[in-house]
């Protein structure tokens, strides 16, 4: 029985250790399931709904936040089941504005925007999917036609 309790304690300690290790590893990667301690360090301005479609090879993410907040961006790697650092820490300055251009290598791209300031941290998941240019053009035509129809 004692052995069993010790084993369980060890298992629990292991779980905590893994969490700590993963937190320390945020320097280069972050788990997709990571949670932040707060939700108000930064506000994502683009994509406003945290997901978007584009025909571009790149996408510009923008955000606002308090001066002194550090922001890192990670991209999810399906093969390794982890989000790897692609944009190293950049501190928000007096303007409160932040923007960064990310490459879109896959049809579905998941990014984690990680912000930290004064011991608090925030994790925002962003999904960017790639669509063919012709599809975007068709959608634009449909929108324009509907707008013209409504006039």
């Amino acid at each position: 029985m004692t052995k069993r309790i010790i084993s369980m304690l060890l298992a629990v300690m292991m779980l905590f250790a893994i969490q700590c290790v993963s937190f320390a590893a945020y320097e280069t990667s972050i788990p997709l399931t990571a949670q932040g301690s707060t939700t108000d360090l930064i506000y994502i301005k683009r994509p406003q709904s945290h997901s978007a479609s584009t025909s571009d090879k790149t996408y510009t993410i923008s955000a606002v936040g308090a001066s002194g907040t550090n922001i890192r961006v990670y991209r999810y790697s399906e093969s390794e089941n982890i989000c790897k650092l692609i944009k190293s820490a950049k501190q928000i300055g007096a303007s409160g504005l932040y923007s960064t251009v990310v490459d879109l290598p896959d049809n579905n791209n998941t990014f984690i925007v990680y912000a930290e300031n004064g011991g608090a941290d925030q994790v925002v998941k962003i999904e960017i999917s790639k669509v063919k240019k012709s599809t975007v053009d068709k959608l634009k035509n449909v929108t324009v036609n509907i707008l013209n129809f409504l006039k």
Partner: peptide, 24 residues
């Protein structure tokens, strides 16, 4: 060639949401 130029409106830097104090 890659030439990424956004306008401020693309990045919503002209719009008042998200506790923003600098407007472009």
């Amino acid at each position: 060639e890659e030439s990424v130029i956004n306008y401020s409106f693309d990045l919503n830097f002209d719009k008042d949401f998200g506790d923003q104090k600098t407007f472009l």
